[in-house]
Design a protein around this nucleic acid. Sequence first.
DNA 1: TAAAAATATTTGAGAATCAAAATATTGAGG
DNA 2: CCTCAATATTTTGATTCTCAAATATTTTTA
Lengths: 153, 153
Amino acid sequence: MSKTYSVLNELLVELFNDILMIEQQALKSKDFNDLSITETHTIEAIGMYGDKTMSEVAEKLNITVGTLTVAVNNLEKKGYVERKRSEEDRRIVFVHLTNKGKLAYRMHEKFHSAMINEVIEGLTDEEEKILVSSLEKLNNFFKKRLKKIGGEE
Amino acid sequence: MSKTYSVLNELLVELFNDILMIEQQALKSKDFNDLSITETHTIEAIGMYGDKTMSEVAEKLNITVGTLTVAVNNLEKKGYVERKRSEEDRRIVFVHLTNKGKLAYRMHEKFHSAMINEVIEGLTDEEEKILVSSLEKLNNFFKKRLKKIGGEE
DNA sequence: TAAAAATATTTGAGAATCAAAATATTGAGG
DNA sequence: CCTCAATATTTTGATTCTCAAATATTTTTA
């Protein structure tokens, strides 16, 4: 069991917890303090451009469409998103961000920028490349794992 | 805005989501399928060795003691943990894992091992170093950020 | 000893979530 | 054209996680 193992394990666990806590706390202090983390993620999944169907958004968030319906109801009430029924196929419901919603989206984006910049800063181009490819490997491992679990049982 | 930025951002976001999903799905397939993610984390926080007070565990999990009380009620009912009132100070309640709880703890640990090992395996020494130091930077950024938010308001 | 502090539990309320039932619409086959 | 299956969404009922505030018990302090 190498030293890298325990270091990496702790780092990942801490990272994960910190991200959650920061997102939570960042919301409380800022404008848009009527948004929960989950709601912010919903806004993120709807995205800046064009309409998305309820199913598309739910899939992206890995939640059921029923859950999303409730979430969108509230976000609509608060003025962050709007619904629009498709004319071609009236079963389908499109959602998109209002101006207020787009503002919130950009706010969240800013948080991410600050985070990433902090990481990149102080890395050489070479190191930057290595970091990206390392994380890609990490990601691939997870994807593989997910497929395996999902496919079997 | 460099290309690295958006790539890194996406990687981190995906990573975060994948970890959540994998933990979720890992639980469903395995034994101990009567445990939620939250409950697993509670077990993790109680830890293998010795007794911990309710307050200590709640602090570690960043939840209120009230929330923990409910969680421990359920875990006790399912046989994963036990309570014991302190003799010296009868306000204090200690919790510790039962044998079943310890088994679950080790199970979760195994999952982490598999994850980290798989990642390290595919990396050269050079990449390993860079990955660790980058994650450390990311972590420092978060710690700083948390202190700032927590301290001010 | 009486008041204040510390520790934990209970309670009431609000999100987030799912599964299953209900609703509305479309498309295909006869 | 009518019916039935499939698709997309919403509604409903239940559970879990969470907090804040009220309550209970015990210890400490003044």
